[in-house]
Design a protein around this nucleic acid. Structure first.
Lengths: 245, 245
DNA sequence: CTTGACGAGTGTACGGCGTACGCCTACCGT
DNA sequence: ACGGTAGGCGTACGCCGTACACTCGTCAAG
Protein backbone atom coordinates (compact mmCIF):
# COMPACT_ATOMS: atom_id res chain seq x y z
CA UNK A 1 0.00 0.00 0.00
CA UNK A 2 3.02 2.29 0.51
CA UNK A 3 4.04 4.50 -2.39
CA UNK A 4 7.33 4.36 -4.24
CA UNK A 5 10.18 6.02 -2.41
CA UNK A 6 11.83 7.68 -5.38
CA UNK A 7 11.32 11.37 -4.65
CA UNK A 8 11.41 12.28 -8.35
CA UNK A 9 8.39 10.38 -9.64
CA UNK A 10 6.10 11.04 -6.71
CA UNK A 11 3.28 13.56 -6.67
CA UNK A 12 4.10 16.51 -4.42
CA UNK A 13 2.55 16.57 -1.00
CA UNK A 14 -0.23 18.96 -0.14
CA UNK A 15 -2.44 19.47 2.85
CA UNK A 16 -5.26 17.88 0.95
CA UNK A 17 -3.27 14.82 -0.03
CA UNK A 18 -2.08 14.41 3.55
CA UNK A 19 -5.60 14.60 4.91
CA UNK A 20 -6.94 12.19 2.34
CA UNK A 21 -4.22 9.68 3.09
CA UNK A 22 -4.82 10.06 6.82
CA UNK A 23 -8.54 9.40 6.42
CA UNK A 24 -7.86 6.38 4.25
CA UNK A 25 -5.33 5.05 6.72
CA UNK A 26 -7.68 5.51 9.66
CA UNK A 27 -10.48 3.85 7.73
CA UNK A 28 -8.29 0.93 6.86
CA UNK A 29 -6.31 0.25 10.00
CA UNK A 30 -8.14 2.06 12.76
CA UNK A 31 -7.52 5.41 14.35
CA UNK A 32 -5.17 4.05 16.99
CA UNK A 33 -2.81 2.81 14.26
CA UNK A 34 -2.62 6.27 12.71
CA UNK A 35 0.75 7.77 13.56
CA UNK A 36 2.64 10.53 11.85
CA UNK A 37 5.38 8.07 11.03
CA UNK A 38 3.04 5.48 9.57
CA UNK A 39 1.20 8.11 7.57
CA UNK A 40 4.46 9.49 6.19
CA UNK A 41 5.52 6.00 5.20
CA UNK A 42 2.21 5.53 3.42
CA UNK A 43 2.92 8.67 1.43
CA UNK A 44 6.46 7.60 0.66
CA UNK A 45 7.91 10.47 2.60
CA UNK A 46 9.91 11.14 5.72
CA UNK A 47 7.83 11.88 8.84
CA UNK A 48 8.89 15.50 9.21
CA UNK A 49 7.73 16.29 5.71
CA UNK A 50 4.15 16.21 6.98
CA UNK A 51 4.83 19.13 9.25
CA UNK A 52 5.10 21.46 6.28
CA UNK A 53 1.39 20.88 5.71
CA UNK A 54 -0.11 20.37 9.15
CA UNK A 55 1.10 22.06 12.31
CA UNK A 56 0.97 18.90 14.43
CA UNK A 57 -1.06 15.78 14.95
CA UNK A 58 -3.92 17.62 16.61
CA UNK A 59 -4.37 19.77 13.56
CA UNK A 60 -4.18 16.70 11.38
CA UNK A 61 -7.05 15.18 13.34
CA UNK A 62 -9.06 18.38 13.09
CA UNK A 63 -8.49 18.40 9.37
CA UNK A 64 -9.64 14.81 9.06
CA UNK A 65 -12.82 15.60 10.98
CA UNK A 66 -13.52 18.58 8.80
CA UNK A 67 -12.98 16.50 5.70
CA UNK A 68 -15.53 13.93 6.84
CA UNK A 69 -18.07 16.37 8.27
CA UNK A 70 -17.70 18.58 5.22
CA UNK A 71 -18.83 15.59 3.20
CA UNK A 72 -22.29 15.60 4.73
CA UNK A 73 -24.76 16.00 1.91
CA UNK A 74 -28.25 16.88 3.15
CA UNK A 75 -31.00 15.60 0.88
CA UNK A 76 -33.66 17.73 -0.76
CA UNK A 77 -35.17 19.45 2.22
CA UNK A 78 -38.87 20.10 2.39
CA UNK A 79 -40.27 23.19 4.05
CA UNK A 80 -41.33 21.46 7.27
CA UNK A 81 -38.89 21.66 10.15
CA UNK A 82 -39.21 18.01 10.95
CA UNK A 83 -38.15 16.80 7.54
CA UNK A 84 -35.30 19.27 7.45
CA UNK A 85 -33.91 18.32 10.83
CA UNK A 86 -34.44 14.65 10.25
CA UNK A 87 -32.84 14.80 6.83
CA UNK A 88 -29.76 16.62 8.03
CA UNK A 89 -29.26 14.30 10.97
CA UNK A 90 -29.65 11.17 8.90
CA UNK A 91 -27.28 12.60 6.31
CA UNK A 92 -24.73 13.20 9.04
CA UNK A 93 -25.16 9.66 10.21
CA UNK A 94 -24.64 8.40 6.70
CA UNK A 95 -21.49 10.44 6.23
CA UNK A 96 -20.00 9.17 9.45
CA UNK A 97 -20.97 5.54 9.08
CA UNK A 98 -18.02 4.74 6.86
CA UNK A 99 -15.56 6.45 9.19
CA UNK A 100 -16.08 4.81 12.57
CA UNK A 101 -13.17 6.70 14.08
CA UNK A 102 -14.66 10.10 13.30
CA UNK A 103 -17.13 10.29 16.17
CA UNK A 104 -14.48 9.39 18.69
CA UNK A 105 -12.09 11.97 17.31
CA UNK A 106 -14.77 14.65 17.28
CA UNK A 107 -15.47 14.03 20.94
CA UNK A 108 -11.81 14.04 21.89
CA UNK A 109 -11.20 17.39 20.24
CA UNK A 110 -11.70 20.39 22.54
CA UNK A 111 -13.73 22.58 20.22
CA UNK A 112 -15.85 22.22 17.11
CA UNK A 113 -14.24 22.57 13.70
CA UNK A 114 -15.69 24.95 11.08
CA UNK A 115 -17.54 22.23 9.21
CA UNK A 116 -19.05 21.05 12.47
CA UNK A 117 -20.20 24.56 13.27
CA UNK A 118 -21.72 24.85 9.83
CA UNK A 119 -23.65 21.63 10.30
CA UNK A 120 -24.94 22.67 13.70
CA UNK A 121 -25.84 26.07 12.34
CA UNK A 122 -27.92 24.43 9.64
CA UNK A 123 -29.78 22.21 12.11
CA UNK A 124 -30.44 25.13 14.43
CA UNK A 125 -31.62 27.14 11.46
CA UNK A 126 -34.09 24.41 10.56
CA UNK A 127 -35.60 24.55 14.05
CA UNK A 128 -35.82 28.34 14.08
CA UNK A 129 -37.37 28.48 10.62
CA UNK A 130 -39.89 25.93 11.80
CA UNK A 131 -41.11 28.27 14.50
CA UNK A 132 -39.09 27.05 17.45
CA UNK A 133 -38.15 29.63 20.06
CA UNK A 134 -34.49 30.17 20.78
CA UNK A 135 -34.98 28.50 24.13
CA UNK A 136 -36.72 25.42 22.85
CA UNK A 137 -34.18 25.11 20.06
CA UNK A 138 -31.43 25.25 22.60
CA UNK A 139 -32.92 22.47 24.65
CA UNK A 140 -33.69 20.44 21.57
CA UNK A 141 -30.09 20.60 20.47
CA UNK A 142 -28.97 19.40 23.86
CA UNK A 143 -31.54 16.63 23.83
CA UNK A 144 -30.42 15.42 20.45
CA UNK A 145 -26.95 15.30 21.91
CA UNK A 146 -24.60 13.22 19.89
CA UNK A 147 -27.36 12.35 17.48
CA UNK A 148 -26.74 15.68 15.81
CA UNK A 149 -23.49 14.15 14.68
CA UNK A 150 -25.10 11.13 13.18
CA UNK A 151 -24.17 8.43 15.56
CA UNK A 152 -25.35 6.87 18.77
CA UNK A 153 -23.40 5.28 21.53
CA UNK A 154 -23.25 1.58 21.13
CA UNK A 155 -21.79 0.54 24.43
CA UNK A 156 -24.71 -1.71 24.45
CA UNK A 157 -24.03 -4.26 21.82
CA UNK A 158 -20.55 -5.77 21.75
CA UNK A 159 -19.98 -9.19 23.23
CA UNK A 160 -19.25 -9.03 26.95
CA UNK A 161 -17.13 -12.12 26.54
CA UNK A 162 -14.17 -9.79 26.49
CA UNK A 163 -13.99 -8.41 30.01
CA UNK A 164 -13.38 -6.04 30.05
CA UNK A 165 -7.30 25.16 21.85
CA UNK A 166 -6.18 27.99 21.90
CA UNK A 167 -3.70 29.22 24.55
CA UNK A 168 -3.29 32.93 25.29
CA UNK A 169 -5.69 34.96 23.17
CA UNK A 170 -4.82 37.42 20.43
CA UNK A 171 -5.29 41.18 20.91
CA UNK A 172 -8.83 42.29 21.74
CA UNK A 173 -9.50 44.11 18.49
CA UNK A 174 -8.55 41.13 16.41
CA UNK A 175 -10.63 38.93 18.65
CA UNK A 176 -13.66 41.12 18.18
CA UNK A 177 -13.22 41.02 14.43
CA UNK A 178 -12.97 37.25 14.53
CA UNK A 179 -16.15 37.16 16.56
CA UNK A 180 -18.00 39.32 14.05
CA UNK A 181 -16.88 37.02 11.28
CA UNK A 182 -18.01 34.03 13.26
CA UNK A 183 -21.40 35.60 13.87
CA UNK A 184 -21.80 36.27 10.19
CA UNK A 185 -20.87 32.79 9.13
CA UNK A 186 -22.85 30.92 11.78
CA UNK A 187 -25.76 33.23 12.59
CA UNK A 188 -27.94 30.65 14.28
CA UNK A 189 -25.22 29.30 16.48
CA UNK A 190 -24.41 32.83 17.48
CA UNK A 191 -27.99 33.74 18.24
CA UNK A 192 -28.43 30.67 20.37
CA UNK A 193 -25.18 31.13 22.21
CA UNK A 194 -25.87 34.80 22.81
CA UNK A 195 -29.26 34.05 24.34
CA UNK A 196 -27.89 31.70 26.94
CA UNK A 197 -24.68 33.48 27.84
CA UNK A 198 -25.22 37.21 27.56
CA UNK A 199 -23.61 37.90 30.90
CA UNK A 200 -20.63 35.61 30.64
CA UNK A 201 -16.98 36.41 30.09
CA UNK A 202 -16.34 33.74 27.51
CA UNK A 203 -16.93 34.55 23.88
CA UNK A 204 -19.71 32.12 23.45
CA UNK A 205 -21.25 29.72 25.84
CA UNK A 206 -20.87 27.89 29.07
CA UNK A 207 -23.94 29.70 30.31
CA UNK A 208 -26.45 26.88 30.38
CA UNK A 209 -27.54 24.57 33.13
CA UNK A 210 -26.18 21.15 32.36
CA UNK A 211 -28.32 19.44 34.92
CA UNK A 212 -31.45 21.02 33.54
CA UNK A 213 -30.58 20.05 29.98
CA UNK A 214 -29.86 16.51 31.05
CA UNK A 215 -33.15 16.09 32.88
CA UNK A 216 -35.04 17.80 30.09
CA UNK A 217 -33.85 15.29 27.53
CA UNK A 218 -34.26 12.40 29.93
CA UNK A 219 -37.85 13.27 30.74
CA UNK A 220 -38.64 13.81 27.10
CA UNK A 221 -37.55 10.25 26.42
CA UNK A 222 -39.27 8.83 29.47
CA UNK A 223 -42.49 10.55 28.41
CA UNK A 224 -42.18 8.93 25.04
CA UNK A 225 -41.56 5.52 26.56
CA UNK A 226 -44.57 5.84 28.80
CA UNK A 227 -46.83 6.70 25.89
CA UNK A 228 -45.62 3.71 23.93
CA UNK A 229 -46.01 1.43 26.91
CA UNK A 230 -49.56 2.57 27.56
CA UNK A 231 -50.58 1.94 23.99
CA UNK A 232 -49.20 -1.57 24.24
CA UNK A 233 -46.36 -1.07 21.82
CA UNK A 234 -45.32 -4.03 19.78
CA UNK A 235 -43.34 -3.25 16.66
CA UNK A 236 -44.69 -0.52 14.40
CA UNK A 237 -41.91 0.98 12.30
CA UNK A 238 -41.92 4.44 13.87
CA UNK A 239 -43.23 5.71 17.21
CA UNK A 240 -45.58 8.29 15.73
CA UNK A 241 -45.31 10.59 12.75
CA UNK A 242 -42.18 9.13 11.30
CA UNK A 243 -41.64 10.09 7.71
CA UNK A 244 -39.14 8.81 5.17
CA UNK A 245 -35.86 10.77 4.88
CA UNK B 1 2.14 14.96 45.63
CA UNK B 2 4.63 12.15 45.10
CA UNK B 3 5.22 9.77 47.99
CA UNK B 4 8.50 9.18 49.74
CA UNK B 5 10.85 6.92 47.85
CA UNK B 6 12.19 4.95 50.79
CA UNK B 7 10.90 1.45 50.12
CA UNK B 8 10.95 0.56 53.80
CA UNK B 9 8.42 3.03 55.16
CA UNK B 10 5.95 2.91 52.29
CA UNK B 11 2.67 1.06 52.33
CA UNK B 12 2.77 -2.01 50.09
CA UNK B 13 1.17 -1.76 46.70
CA UNK B 14 -2.06 -3.53 45.93
CA UNK B 15 -4.41 -3.58 43.00
CA UNK B 16 -6.78 -1.41 44.96
CA UNK B 17 -4.16 1.15 45.86
CA UNK B 18 -3.01 1.30 42.26
CA UNK B 19 -6.55 1.86 40.99
CA UNK B 20 -7.25 4.51 43.60
CA UNK B 21 -4.09 6.38 42.74
CA UNK B 22 -4.86 6.13 39.04
CA UNK B 23 -8.34 7.56 39.55
CA UNK B 24 -6.97 10.37 41.66
CA UNK B 25 -4.29 11.15 39.13
CA UNK B 26 -6.76 11.18 36.26
CA UNK B 27 -9.08 13.42 38.27
CA UNK B 28 -6.30 15.81 39.04
CA UNK B 29 -4.31 16.05 35.85
CA UNK B 30 -6.56 14.66 33.17
CA UNK B 31 -6.69 11.25 31.57
CA UNK B 32 -4.18 12.10 28.87
CA UNK B 33 -1.55 12.80 31.51
CA UNK B 34 -2.07 9.39 33.08
CA UNK B 35 0.86 7.20 32.13
CA UNK B 36 2.18 4.10 33.82
CA UNK B 37 5.39 5.92 34.54
CA UNK B 38 3.69 8.95 36.04
CA UNK B 39 1.40 6.77 38.10
CA UNK B 40 4.34 4.76 39.41
CA UNK B 41 6.13 7.95 40.36
CA UNK B 42 3.05 9.11 42.21
CA UNK B 43 3.12 5.89 44.21
CA UNK B 44 6.84 6.20 44.87
CA UNK B 45 7.58 3.08 42.92
CA UNK B 46 9.32 2.01 39.74
CA UNK B 47 7.04 1.69 36.67
CA UNK B 48 7.33 -2.06 36.30
CA UNK B 49 6.12 -2.60 39.85
CA UNK B 50 2.61 -1.76 38.69
CA UNK B 51 2.57 -4.76 36.40
CA UNK B 52 2.43 -7.11 39.38
CA UNK B 53 -1.05 -5.74 40.08
CA UNK B 54 -2.50 -4.93 36.67
CA UNK B 55 -1.77 -6.84 33.49
CA UNK B 56 -1.31 -3.75 31.35
CA UNK B 57 -2.61 -0.26 30.86
CA UNK B 58 -5.85 -1.44 29.26
CA UNK B 59 -6.68 -3.45 32.35
CA UNK B 60 -5.78 -0.48 34.49
CA UNK B 61 -8.30 1.63 32.62
CA UNK B 62 -10.94 -1.09 32.93
CA UNK B 63 -10.29 -1.21 36.65
CA UNK B 64 -10.65 2.53 36.95
CA UNK B 65 -13.95 2.44 35.12
CA UNK B 66 -15.22 -0.33 37.34
CA UNK B 67 -14.17 1.60 40.42
CA UNK B 68 -16.13 4.65 39.34
CA UNK B 69 -19.17 2.81 37.98
CA UNK B 70 -19.20 0.59 41.04
CA UNK B 71 -19.57 3.75 43.09
CA UNK B 72 -23.01 4.48 41.63
CA UNK B 73 -25.41 4.64 44.53
CA UNK B 74 -29.04 4.50 43.41
CA UNK B 75 -31.38 6.35 45.76
CA UNK B 76 -34.37 4.83 47.48
CA UNK B 77 -36.31 3.50 44.55
CA UNK B 78 -40.07 3.68 44.44
CA UNK B 79 -42.16 0.96 42.84
CA UNK B 80 -42.90 2.90 39.66
CA UNK B 81 -40.65 2.18 36.72
CA UNK B 82 -40.19 5.81 35.90
CA UNK B 83 -38.79 6.75 39.27
CA UNK B 84 -36.56 3.73 39.30
CA UNK B 85 -35.10 4.35 35.87
CA UNK B 86 -34.80 8.06 36.46
CA UNK B 87 -33.17 7.56 39.83
CA UNK B 88 -30.60 5.13 38.55
CA UNK B 89 -29.69 7.27 35.59
CA UNK B 90 -29.32 10.41 37.65
CA UNK B 91 -27.25 8.49 40.19
CA UNK B 92 -24.99 7.36 37.39
CA UNK B 93 -24.65 10.90 36.21
CA UNK B 94 -23.79 12.02 39.71
CA UNK B 95 -21.14 9.35 40.10
CA UNK B 96 -19.52 10.26 36.83
CA UNK B 97 -19.67 14.02 37.21
CA UNK B 98 -16.56 14.15 39.35
CA UNK B 99 -14.60 11.96 36.95
CA UNK B 100 -14.88 13.67 33.59
CA UNK B 101 -12.47 11.21 32.02
CA UNK B 102 -14.63 8.20 32.84
CA UNK B 103 -17.16 8.56 30.04
CA UNK B 104 -14.46 8.86 27.44
CA UNK B 105 -12.63 5.84 28.78
CA UNK B 106 -15.83 3.80 28.88
CA UNK B 107 -16.47 4.54 25.25
CA UNK B 108 -12.93 3.76 24.20
CA UNK B 109 -13.00 0.34 25.85
CA UNK B 110 -14.20 -2.46 23.60
CA UNK B 111 -16.58 -4.18 25.97
CA UNK B 112 -18.50 -3.37 29.13
CA UNK B 113 -16.91 -4.04 32.50
CA UNK B 114 -18.77 -6.05 35.16
CA UNK B 115 -19.93 -2.98 37.06
CA UNK B 116 -21.25 -1.52 33.84
CA UNK B 117 -23.15 -4.71 33.10
CA UNK B 118 -24.61 -4.64 36.58
CA UNK B 119 -25.79 -1.08 36.14
CA UNK B 120 -27.38 -1.83 32.79
CA UNK B 121 -28.96 -4.94 34.18
CA UNK B 122 -30.56 -2.88 36.92
CA UNK B 123 -31.94 -0.32 34.50
CA UNK B 124 -33.28 -3.02 32.21
CA UNK B 125 -34.79 -4.72 35.24
CA UNK B 126 -36.59 -1.52 36.18
CA UNK B 127 -38.18 -1.34 32.74
CA UNK B 128 -39.21 -4.99 32.73
CA UNK B 129 -40.67 -4.79 36.24
CA UNK B 130 -42.62 -1.75 35.10
CA UNK B 131 -44.40 -3.77 32.45
CA UNK B 132 -42.22 -3.02 29.43
CA UNK B 133 -41.95 -5.73 26.82
CA UNK B 134 -38.51 -7.04 26.00
CA UNK B 135 -38.72 -5.30 22.68
CA UNK B 136 -39.72 -1.94 23.99
CA UNK B 137 -37.10 -2.18 26.69
CA UNK B 138 -34.52 -2.92 24.09
CA UNK B 139 -35.41 0.15 22.06
CA UNK B 140 -35.64 2.28 25.15
CA UNK B 141 -32.12 1.34 26.15
CA UNK B 142 -30.87 2.27 22.73
CA UNK B 143 -32.76 5.53 22.81
CA UNK B 144 -31.32 6.45 26.16
CA UNK B 145 -27.96 5.81 24.58
CA UNK B 146 -25.14 7.34 26.49
CA UNK B 147 -27.58 8.76 29.00
CA UNK B 148 -27.66 5.38 30.66
CA UNK B 149 -24.15 6.18 31.69
CA UNK B 150 -25.02 9.46 33.23
CA UNK B 151 -23.61 11.91 30.81
CA UNK B 152 -24.52 13.66 27.62
CA UNK B 153 -22.35 14.74 24.77
CA UNK B 154 -21.44 18.34 25.14
CA UNK B 155 -19.88 19.04 21.80
CA UNK B 156 -22.21 21.92 21.90
CA UNK B 157 -20.85 24.19 24.55
CA UNK B 158 -17.14 24.90 24.51
CA UNK B 159 -15.89 28.13 23.04
CA UNK B 160 -15.29 27.88 19.30
CA UNK B 161 -12.49 30.37 19.71
CA UNK B 162 -10.21 27.38 19.75
CA UNK B 163 -10.28 26.10 16.22
CA UNK B 164 -11.07 23.65 15.98
CA UNK B 165 -10.03 -8.12 26.45
CA UNK B 166 -9.81 -11.27 25.71
CA UNK B 167 -8.04 -12.84 22.67
CA UNK B 168 -8.71 -16.37 21.42
CA UNK B 169 -11.51 -18.03 23.32
CA UNK B 170 -11.16 -20.72 25.96
CA UNK B 171 -12.48 -24.27 25.39
CA UNK B 172 -16.18 -24.56 24.65
CA UNK B 173 -17.20 -26.19 27.92
CA UNK B 174 -15.55 -23.50 29.96
CA UNK B 175 -17.13 -20.88 27.73
CA UNK B 176 -20.57 -22.33 28.27
CA UNK B 177 -20.02 -22.32 32.02
CA UNK B 178 -18.94 -18.70 31.85
CA UNK B 179 -22.06 -17.91 29.87
CA UNK B 180 -24.31 -19.56 32.45
CA UNK B 181 -22.62 -17.59 35.18
CA UNK B 182 -23.11 -14.42 33.16
CA UNK B 183 -26.76 -15.20 32.64
CA UNK B 184 -27.20 -15.74 36.33
CA UNK B 185 -25.50 -12.57 37.35
CA UNK B 186 -27.09 -10.32 34.72
CA UNK B 187 -30.44 -11.93 34.00
CA UNK B 188 -32.07 -8.96 32.35
CA UNK B 189 -29.17 -8.24 30.07
CA UNK B 190 -29.19 -11.87 29.08
CA UNK B 191 -32.90 -11.96 28.42
CA UNK B 192 -32.72 -8.89 26.27
CA UNK B 193 -29.70 -10.06 24.36
CA UNK B 194 -31.20 -13.47 23.79
CA UNK B 195 -34.39 -12.01 22.37
CA UNK B 196 -32.61 -10.00 19.72
CA UNK B 197 -29.91 -12.44 18.71
CA UNK B 198 -31.21 -15.97 19.10
CA UNK B 199 -29.84 -17.08 15.78
CA UNK B 200 -26.43 -15.50 15.95
CA UNK B 201 -23.05 -17.07 16.48
CA UNK B 202 -21.77 -14.56 18.97
CA UNK B 203 -22.47 -15.16 22.63
CA UNK B 204 -24.57 -12.14 23.08
CA UNK B 205 -25.54 -9.54 20.61
CA UNK B 206 -25.00 -7.84 17.30
CA UNK B 207 -28.44 -8.91 16.25
CA UNK B 208 -30.25 -5.58 16.17
CA UNK B 209 -30.87 -3.11 13.42
CA UNK B 210 -28.78 -0.03 14.17
CA UNK B 211 -30.56 2.11 11.64
CA UNK B 212 -33.94 1.26 13.13
CA UNK B 213 -32.76 2.01 16.65
CA UNK B 214 -31.33 5.31 15.54
CA UNK B 215 -34.48 6.44 13.82
CA UNK B 216 -36.63 5.17 16.66
CA UNK B 217 -34.85 7.37 19.17
CA UNK B 218 -34.68 10.27 16.78
CA UNK B 219 -38.39 10.20 16.06
CA UNK B 220 -39.19 9.85 19.73
CA UNK B 221 -37.33 13.08 20.38
CA UNK B 222 -38.78 14.84 17.35
CA UNK B 223 -42.28 13.86 18.51
CA UNK B 224 -41.51 15.37 21.87
CA UNK B 225 -40.23 18.57 20.34
CA UNK B 226 -43.29 18.90 18.18
CA UNK B 227 -45.60 18.54 21.15
CA UNK B 228 -43.71 21.19 23.07
CA UNK B 229 -43.69 23.52 20.12
CA UNK B 230 -47.41 23.17 19.56
CA UNK B 231 -48.19 24.00 23.14
CA UNK B 232 -46.06 27.13 22.83
CA UNK B 233 -43.35 25.99 25.18
CA UNK B 234 -41.61 28.67 27.18
CA UNK B 235 -39.76 27.45 30.22
CA UNK B 236 -41.58 25.09 32.55
CA UNK B 237 -39.11 23.07 34.58
CA UNK B 238 -39.93 19.68 33.09
CA UNK B 239 -41.67 18.63 29.86
CA UNK B 240 -44.35 16.58 31.53
CA UNK B 241 -44.43 14.33 34.53
CA UNK B 242 -40.97 15.08 35.83
CA UNK B 243 -40.48 14.01 39.40
CA UNK B 244 -37.70 14.78 41.82
CA UNK B 245 -34.91 12.22 42.02
C1' DC C 1 24.10 34.51 -16.16
C1' DT C 2 24.55 35.11 -11.44
C1' DT C 3 22.57 35.31 -7.10
C1' DG C 4 19.92 35.13 -3.25
C1' DA C 5 15.50 34.13 -1.11
C1' DC C 6 12.26 30.62 -0.32
C1' DG C 7 9.67 26.52 0.29
C1' DA C 8 9.46 21.49 0.20
C1' DG C 9 11.50 17.44 1.74
C1' DT C 10 15.50 15.26 4.69
C1' DG C 11 18.31 13.61 8.69
C1' DT C 12 19.36 13.49 13.24
C1' DA C 13 18.21 13.65 17.86
C1' DC C 14 15.52 14.07 22.24
C1' DG C 15 12.37 12.91 25.65
C1' DG C 16 8.40 10.15 26.71
C1' DC C 17 5.65 6.11 26.22
C1' DG C 18 4.23 0.83 27.21
C1' DT C 19 6.26 -3.19 28.56
C1' DA C 20 9.40 -7.81 28.01
C1' DC C 21 12.82 -10.01 30.67
C1' DG C 22 15.74 -11.07 34.34
C1' DC C 23 17.41 -10.17 39.05
C1' DC C 24 17.29 -9.40 44.01
C1' DT C 25 15.39 -9.94 48.36
C1' DA C 26 12.14 -10.50 52.17
C1' DC C 27 8.92 -13.60 53.72
C1' DC C 28 6.71 -18.15 54.26
C1' DG C 29 5.58 -23.09 55.17
C1' DT C 30 8.05 -27.19 55.88
C1' DA D 1 17.83 -24.38 57.80
C1' DC D 2 15.95 -23.95 53.28
C1' DG D 3 13.64 -23.72 48.86
C1' DG D 4 9.67 -21.43 46.75
C1' DT D 5 7.27 -17.53 45.81
C1' DA D 6 5.71 -12.83 45.36
C1' DG D 7 6.64 -8.05 45.10
C1' DG D 8 9.65 -4.51 43.75
C1' DC D 9 13.93 -3.08 40.74
C1' DG D 10 16.92 -2.15 36.59
C1' DT D 11 17.79 -2.38 32.03
C1' DA D 12 16.54 -2.34 27.40
C1' DC D 13 13.69 -2.20 23.08
C1' DG D 14 10.83 -0.25 19.79
C1' DC D 15 7.43 2.83 19.22
C1' DC D 16 5.67 7.78 19.43
C1' DG D 17 5.48 13.21 18.40
C1' DT D 18 8.31 16.72 17.00
C1' DA D 19 12.42 20.53 17.49
C1' DC D 20 16.14 21.98 14.75
C1' DA D 21 19.31 22.42 11.21
C1' DC D 22 20.34 20.90 6.59
C1' DT D 23 19.92 20.36 1.40
C1' DC D 24 18.25 21.18 -2.95
C1' DG D 25 15.19 22.76 -6.74
C1' DT D 26 12.79 26.77 -8.38
C1' DC D 27 12.33 31.32 -9.67
C1' DA D 28 12.50 36.52 -9.59
C1' DA D 29 15.59 40.43 -9.40
C1' DG D 30 19.89 42.33 -10.50
Amino acid sequence: MAQQTDPARRAPLSRDRVLRAAVALADGTGIEALSMRRLAQELGVVPMALYKHVANKEELLDGMVDAVVGGIRPPDLGPDWRGAVRGRILAAREALRSHPWASQVIRSRSGPTPALLAHMDAVIGAFRTGGFSVDLTHHAMHALGSRILGFTQEVFDAPPGAAPGAAAGPPAAEQAAAFRQLAERYPHVTELAGATAHDDDSVVGRGCDDQFEFEFALDLLLDGFERLRQQGWTSSPSPAGGRAG
